[in-house]
Amino acid sequence: MDILKVRDLKTYFKIKAGTVKAVDGVSFTLKEGESLGLVGESGCGKTTIALSITQLLPPEGLIAGGEIYFEGTNLLKLNEEEIRAKRWKDISIIFQGAMNALNPVMRVGDQISEACVYHEGMSYDSARKRVKELFSLVEIDESRIDDYPHEFSGGMKQRAVIAMALACGPKIVIGDEPTTALDVMIQAQILQLLNRLRKEMDMSMIIITHDLSILGETCDKVAVVYAGKIVEIGEVETIYEEHTHPYTEKLVKAFPNIFGKREMTASIPGMPPNLINPPAGCRFHPRCEHATEKCRLVEPKLKLIGGEHYVACHLRGDNDE
């Protein structure tokens, strides 16, 4: 069963210099219980996709087109009140930078119970009870419920933010860089926790990250995002081992391969394009060493090249309509 279907999503930001096409025609499907990774360089539109799904865009952000179906209902057709009923109860976010996501002058327990009080209409006492359950779920000692965020370590703050995202038993949790800025060991603990929670609570998950190397432990499928578009999507093993898009290849190669020879990794030449005036044709062509005339003129579409593996590149799967 598909729980979330995003079709041709376009999210633009209107700023003084023009319109930034941060997300420009993104489509993907999330199955029930599945975990999807969105990976790409900074500024490629990963977080904007998440904010569009939950409709938490800043005022200058605007969803210019497309559909987002959650269990069959188009979220973009709902009014603010109806969205608010779904947000957090059905779809919640673990925000980037747990260090700054908590209110420093409010007790951690109160911040989490607030979500239960607002979204589920719980009484303060039963919300507190729920928070204690959530704390044990994310492995924080119950006695810390009345602590302030500064009394928590980095890893514990991250757990608290996860507890907050789980407060209303959502069906989809979106993790925006859930382990960035954490230590290796804490990162492993958090990833293990997310995996366990996904299975125990029967949730679907979207993990947004720039770190391709953590996806193997957490995701079933991976979508590689470049300049506001998905350029390749497939099972995580396919993306690691049998990727065909030149950008994915460069992204994978940018990580040291400790199973291979000790040689310097390659960087990706050039910079991601300006999204006010993205390059014509394939958006990756200025940085691609295989670019041909066609790549400069015609934009490649995502094409199925086997299994659940889609790629948008003229050089691969050249079955043009």
Partner: peptide, 20 residues
């Protein structure tokens, strides 16, 4: 054992230390 690597390793044995 917990170093992330861009590879799927189903048989991977991680020693995740508790606490900080």
């Amino acid at each position: 054992s917990v170093m992330p690597v861009p590879k799927v390793r189903k048989d991977r044995k991680m020693t995740i230390l508790e606490g900080e």
